[in-house]
């Protein structure tokens, strides 16, 4: 019970001090809006393409939203030493890091629904398999957050975290099947696609929105869960190795 009081208050503090601040709310709204508009306008094929583009826009909104925030909530707090206060708290290290990442996961889920809300006014969303779409959004938010955490704890400065994130984020736009089918990628790039977690998230979203997917949903979600565990464990190991000298 005591640990959960700590967990809840860390999450609440992060929500108040970071995620619900006007600049971040506007980033959370404007960024998916910009992506959505850019792809819809550039596709030039009219509103019928919305359902094809929606999974990619949702995934990209989650990815950029979550990974950007971890650099602030973790790297910045480490730099100004307030993270030490959390490390001194008598709660398990795993729960502490879950508390620090829960806000980003919720922020990512929130970001995901900005393009969905826009799409409500432009297309018929009744065909979406929501029972698959919602868990997929949640899993993508988790895996992106843990990827952001992995990056944030590997560097010392906020700007390094942002720069380092881009090495992962931008290739993922092209390699994970968000807008370009993986089958159309050059053969030598395909193994790389399957090594990236977003590939499986995008596959579920495509399946849930318009029915085209490569793998069974259960396998996609299981692989996303495996990536979550792997990235979270690697991040914890890195924090212990680098920050608790």
């Amino acid at each position: 019970m005591k640990s959960w009081i700590a967990y809840w208050n860390i999450l609440l503090k992060d929500m108040r001090t970071y995620y619900l601040k006007p600049p971040n709310v506007s980033w959370g709204l404007i960024f998916p809006l910009a992506w959505t508009s850019m792809f819809f306008i550039r596709s030039g094929t009219g509103l019928e393409d919305i359902m094809i583009l929606l999974p990619g826009v949702v995934a990209i909104s989650i990815l950029f939203g979550t990974t950007s925030m971890l650099a602030v909530t973790v790297t910045f707090e480490k730099k100004n030493r307030s993270f030490e206060r959390l490390l001194l708290a008598p709660i398990s290290f795993e729960l502490l890091m879950l508390a620090k990442t829960s806000g980003a996961i919720l922020f990512g889920v929130g970001n995901a629904f900005v393009p969905v809300i826009i799409a409500v006014f432009l297309a018929d969303l009744t065909q979406i398999a929501w029972h698959v779409f919602v868990p997929a959004v949640f899993m993508i938010a988790m895996v992106s957050t843990f990827l952001g955490l992995f990056i944030a704890v590997a560097v010392s400065e906020v700007f390094e975290a942002q720069t380092f994130s881009n090495f992962f984020r931008f290739p993922m736009i092209f390699l994970c099947g968000l807008f370009f089918p993986i089958e159309k990628l050059p053969v030598f790039l395909k193994p790389l696609s399957y090594a990236l977690p977003l590939t499986y998230g995008a596959d579920v979203l495509h399946g849930a929105v318009h029915g085209n997917h490569m793998m069974p949903f259960a396998l996609d979600l299981a692989l996303l869960a495996a990536f979550c565990v792997l990235l979270f464990a690697a991040s914890l190991w890195n924090i212990k190795r680098r920050w608790i000298l």
Partner: peptide, 16 residues
């Protein structure tokens, strides 16, 4: 970014 009172309440919450 937190007030003095909120800082103390937050630290207390860390101890359950």
């Amino acid at each position: 970014e937190l007030t003095g009172f909120d800082n103390l309440c937050f630290c207390a919450a860390l101890y359950g």
